[in-house]
Design a protein around this nucleic acid. Structure first.
Lengths: 131, 131
DNA sequence: GTATTTACCTACTATGTCAATAGGTAAATA
DNA sequence: TATTTACCTATTGACATAGTAGGTAAATAC
């Protein structure tokens, strides 16, 4: 299940793309337009900055703006950054302990194929497709 | 993320299919072979019986057995029963309150398409494919 | 008809994650 | 100097997950 972290991140990027005026856009405005708690968005946006999805500037006239063109953001990259990974079962998560049953596990290929479908779908979609 | 409820349910069905001897198989044996807590499996298996995935019989010689042929179980049906639904975002869950933003939401089609891909994938796979 | 084996039932619990909130400090501009 | 903004640390309530504990009811074997 994709959480608010990933979903809100995408909405922030859409908002920034559609309200782009060349300068920085204050989080207050984004939060108001998107009807999301500004305080909660701060946490999410902070991770987006450190993850290289956008840049921030403090002080008057500050705010956030995109650091790439919308077609250069894949949805998969955004979700993977915000959700950790989109592994659909625990044993395929990035930080999972190696499963001792993996070799003979009859369900593993099912999850692996689904993970691949998921990966391919979200990496084929870009921010520009959502505008 | 698919939880142990759905994953263990599939493993129980695989175990029953592969150890089918025409009669009932005690949960104790399934739990031992699959290395899953029998107590926890009781909860899962109970829901599988009430959901029509298998039948149980009490007493000596009792246990569980499949009530259909393996090719008549779709993975999608199993997961949907055990996980509630496999909606990938909260606003598409079966019990979700209608989202006031749905009409103008620019991300909704992204999630809807992914939900459809997920649905189609899991309903195309059957227990017989996993044996 | 008693002992044994099995399913089936209700309740409880530890742990972790999610979705925030609270209350600040630092930086940049007017 | 005042204002606006990002940025930082800590805390919280609600809920889900993955179990555990301790029983009762049903069916068969002897």
């Amino acid at each position: 299940m994709i959480s608010t972290r990933g979903r809100y991140a995408i909405r922030v990027l859409i908002d920034l793309a559609e309200n782009d005026n060349g300068g920085y856009i204050p989080l207050k405005d984004i939060a108001a337009r998107q009807d999301i708690s500004k305080k909660y968005l701060e946490i999410i946006v902070k991770d987006m900055v450190s993850g290289g999805l956008l840049v921030g500037a403090s002080g008057k006239g500050g705010g956030y703006k995109l650091c790439r063109k919308p077609e250069e953001y894949s949805v998969g990259e955004i979700l993977e950054l915000m959700e950790g990974s989109f592994a659909t079962v625990a044993c395929l998560a990035d930080d999972a302990a190696p499963c001792p049953r993996a070799k003979e596990c009859q369900t593993l290929p099912l999850w692996e194929e689904y993970d691949k479908i998921t990966h391919d779908y979200f990496y084929s979609k870009h921010l520009s497709d959502l505008l």
